[in-house]
Design a protein around this nucleic acid. Structure first.
Lengths: 140, 140
DNA sequence: CCTTGACCTCAAGCCAGCTTCAAGTTGCAG
DNA sequence: CTGCAACTTGAAGCTGGCTTGAGGTCAAGG
């Protein structure tokens, strides 16, 4: 059993954020010693999961839908797959952006907006984006 | 030469956003007819580029550093490469997240936080994240 | 020439995700 | 038992990226 300071020390997540997450129902404190929250060690895993989700561009609400306050994945396997698909699209966009940047860093073309290769990368990614807008998903 | 309504129609970007981007120095209007802004067709490409950057998790300020108001990549090739590297890290995290979600959608384990495969995916991604925090980069 | 409505500006507002602040409580070292 | 540092709460504040609103200007059609 960990007090909030210990959780802060081990996770690097500020106390204010822990209280905020608890208020939002993303984590649970297992009890109180007086006023003070007590956490089960498992909260450290949940925090890692939340950080991962945030880094993947999900909102806190979405993460809340994917995992319960105990950190277990939602029963809705279909929703989980849908999130995974959304991530695939995002990954494709990011890859195009990365390739575009790498190309721009190398290519000596006078105007990149007119460089064939650069435009091709741009188009791949922006075509993807329109698809996503239609579906209204995963707009990091 | 396009007026703002035409740019809105062709790009899907709201007029308020166009004015905001101009104010921020991300795009340029090439002149005025009376009070009204006139844009060169090239602004459509720049908007696509900005949308791509946003989707890749860059802030407007970062995009401003990567590309000048004409849409040409920054002269600082080193910075462009650095952004590309940051994207590589992000892509790795997202891939781990995606795999984790796909696994969670399938795996019948009672507790995923104790599922070896799930934990392995989590760890890959959170190790990556610490590296990024140290470098202070790309925290979508 | 006059109206109209598309554009303009500037300021304020909104949402997410936190952080900060003021004021109150309490476990525990001395 | 006392004191104080570490916790607590609730509300307000902040940043980024826009959107909205009030009030003003002006180009073009009738």
């Amino acid at each position: 059993m960990l007090d909030i300071t210990e959780v802060v020390r081990r996770s690097g997540v500020p106390a204010s954020t822990l209280r905020y997450y608890e208020e939002k129902g993303l984590i649970l404190s297992t009890g109180r010693r007086g006023l003070k929250r007590i956490f089960a060690p498992r909260v450290l895993d949940q925090l890692a999961l939340i950080a991962l989700g945030r880094a993947a561009g999900f909102t806190l609400d979405e993460i809340g839908e994917m995992f319960d306050a105990g950190g277990e994945p939602s029963i809705d396997r279909h929703a989980l797959s849908a999130k995974a698909d959304a991530l695939d699209d995002t990954i494709r966009k990011l890859s195009a952006m990365r390739d575009g940047l790498r190309h721009a860093a190398k290519c000596p073309a006078p105007s990149h907006l007119e460089c064939v290769q650069f435009r091709r990368l741009m188009n791949i990614a922006s075509a993807r984006m329109k698809v996503e807008k239609q579906r209204g998903s995963q707009d990091i």
